[in-house]
Write a protein that binds this DNA or RNA. Structure first.
Lengths: 410, 410
DNA sequence: TATGTTTGTCGCTTTATGCAACATATTAAT
DNA sequence: ATTAATATGTTGCATAAAGCGACAAACATA
């Protein structure tokens, strides 16, 4: 390809474009009639009919059986249309998360419903890449019957690593990997030849949390995942903003150098480790958990509250700094530490207002309520998204390569 | 429009798409033959010919007269193709910058060459919006003969203000504006009915500096404009990243709270005012200029070097913090203060490496060498960019609205 | 001079959409 | 109950644009 978005669309390309548009519309709205679809896509009703016929022949769309009562509230005049819907189990996608302490896998269908999940403990640092990939693939496939395998249309991998968009890992400090082509390894380990994408776990998490059937939020959403480490991802107008090296949104490395002494970054201040280290100093319990800490905060134990207060302050600074740069209008907190936020929301807001010039708009802060399998789900969504795009394997001309890199110049 | 990128491509749309692709290719590469164009656009030669015929009929493209020697270095076998080029003066665009101390305007042609410029002193804060717009429009049009006016295809406005993408200004602290529809005011003040876009001056500057005939840099570029104030813009894969409120990249408001005492932001530390305030304390001159400061630094005068050292350190911190979040791979420094950078590049780099974990990639830092009219040029480029897109007025169906907002839901 | 190579054009085919018309299914009105 | 009104889905035909193959033209090389 010479230049992105410079390539012309051929005659066949039109239909492909319209087919994916139809699939996306059906995914987003759940059920539509041919006429509704035509209006949404600004097509003629007859064209809409043709496209649906083609998708139905491929087994991706069907006419819905009118069993459910429908939102039959208002019955307008005229012949009622026939509801169309995606065929959920027409195809499926797999998502795999290779974490530090566990491997988890998800199977989602064409409607992005979670069909099944698997989790397995894992000791990342002690296992090399090939073995990790092998275990991950095995876990993902264990509940898939062989006959179903051919309906798999993609596998996504997420892992705590810095990688480029081709799935080549430059560095994974927590796992000890360096310069491994993760996507290629997974591709080779699979018994089927399907598209494989890999992404940083925080980025995948962000995708999973925003990629739903709800309408795309056009704006900038900052996603924060707070565990031992603090990761982040940025979603712009519904799609991931990777940055030049896939590191965009990794705000855990922000320097919050307010305190005297050695420079500390945000991760060290708001991560689980710091909280628990502080808490252990004062807790009466011998081996206190984060849950203990939360209830102590709720019960207003001064020492716990003080720790939480420091946390709130550091979080506020981190968020303000970040929003100065990316101008987000929505912040979503995730990860186990996020549970502390509801207790401290007022304090965080107070700090933000203290730091911030009042004339600046500040984003709303919400919690990631959907208890999905997180990162693995997001990785699977990436392939769902790809399938509902022009890069879909359905349109492979034979000329298109599946494997390698894509950038070439003449 | 229901959803971005959900609208279907009709038959006519395909041609429009190919026409703009051809125009963009000609703009980027300057001269191409029909066959070369066909290869770049992955079209058939005959299709390429048809598209060129259509564009030629519209007066936008012509066959170049082979006067200039051509890069005739290598003559390959076969019939030589006929070089095609954009007709520069087929149409033109205007860019207007309403600054704090001056108004400047630019006229650019279809090849994004600057045709003419006008600058006029101006006292922003003392004049209300309507009067400012009136003066700006008058200045922009003063050198355009009436007969030429109909070939104008768009006007861009840039001003130091926070505005949404429709050109509605929420707040312009330096000019004292609040909640004015700048784009609409300009539209109404013009004697012609053309598309009008407005953008923050730093953002416009960033667009102007990256929007050239050079190939699009796919990656993340951070643009810094250092004058009295410090503004910034972020370009992602060749197009502006505005953020939710048009404030993305405004890193002047980053908090660099390292020093004890009141919290200071980046603008206060690396802006012209701070440098000169420091310099005045020690300079022997009665009314020292920034130029004096630069030569003192070059001559290694300790006090000046010390001020510059502080500047370098603050800049390094600001850049590292920003790149942690947006993961830029290229930083471009602009504005008058940027002249200090070449003298301090080594110190900045040293600070960056001291702060930064070594495993992180860090972007290259360059200067904005092209001494363009900056912000006004960028504003004009926005309309050039728009013209070379599917939103171009050339494709107006009559149904498409030119004026108001665009977002509506059914 | 002959041959090979690349370009631009022309006619024909293919494909997908748009348009108009029509039968169909439902609601509202008489 | 019957009729009018309205919206849907389908069908046949027109249109638009790209692809394909072929051919003359223009140039380099042997």
């Amino acid at each position: 390809m010479n230049d992105p978005a410079l390539t012309a669309s051929s005659n066949r390309r039109i239909r492909q474009n319209n087919e994916v548009a139809a699939l996306r519309a059906l995914h987003q709205f759940g059920r539509l009639t041919r006429a509704e679809l035509a209006r949404k896509l600004r097509l003629n009703r007859s064209s809409s009919g043709h496209i649906i016929a083609s998708l139905t022949a491929d087994g991706l769309v069907r006419e819905a059986i009118e069993d459910l009562p429908e939102q039959a509230g208002y019955a307008r005049a005229g012949r009622p249309g026939i509801m169309l819907e995606l065929v959920p189990d027409a195809i499926f996608f797999l998502g795999v998360e290779i974490g530090v302490e566990h491997i988890s896998t998800v199977e989602i269908d064409l409607g992005t419903n979670i069909v099944s999940t698997n989790v397995e403990p894992f000791d990342g640092p002690s296992i090399n890449v090939e073995a990790a990939v092998d275990r991950a693939v095995r876990l993902a496939l264990q509940s898939i019957p062989v006959s179903k395998l051919e309906r798999c249309e993609g596998v996504g991998v997420s892992t705590p690593a810095q990688m480029d968009k081709n799935g080549f890992v430059h560095f994974a400090p927590l796992l000890g990997w360096r310069n491994v082509h993760l996507a290629k390894l997974v591709r080779d380990a699979l018994p089927i030849r399907v598209p494989v994408l890999a992404e940083n776990d925080a980025n995948a998490f962000a995708i999973g949390a925003t990629y739903g059937r709800s309408e795309v939020h056009s704006g900038v959403t900052l996603f924060l995942v707070m565990e031992s480490g603090v990761g982040g991802g940025i979603i712009v107008d519904g799609s991931l903003f990777r940055g030049a090296n896939g590191l965009a949104g990794e705000i855990g490395h922000l320097i919050i150098s307010d305190a005297p002494g050695p420079r500390r970054n945000l991760e060290q201040l708001i991560g689980l480790e710091n909280i628990m280290a502080d808490y252990r100093k004062t807790s009466a319990l011998s081996d206190p958990t984060f849950g203990n800490f939360l209830s102590d905060v709720q019960n207003r134990l001064p020492s716990a509250v003080s720790t939480a207060e420091d946390w709130a302050r550091a979080l506020a600074i981190g968020l303000v700094q970040t929003c100065r740069i990316i101008d987000a209008d929505k912040i979503v907190l995730g990860g186990s530490v996020a549970a502390l936020y509801p207790l401290m929301a007022a304090r965080v807001a107070a700090h933000i207002h203290a730091i911030q010039e009042s004339s600046f708009p500040f984003p709303s802060i919400t919690m990631n309520d959907e208890g999905t399998v997180g990162s693995a789900f997001g990785a699977a969504c990436m392939l769902h998204q790809r399938y509902l795009s022009l890069q879909s394997q359905r349109f492979a001309d034979g000329t298109a390569e599946l494997e390698g890199a894509e950038e070439d110049e003449d």
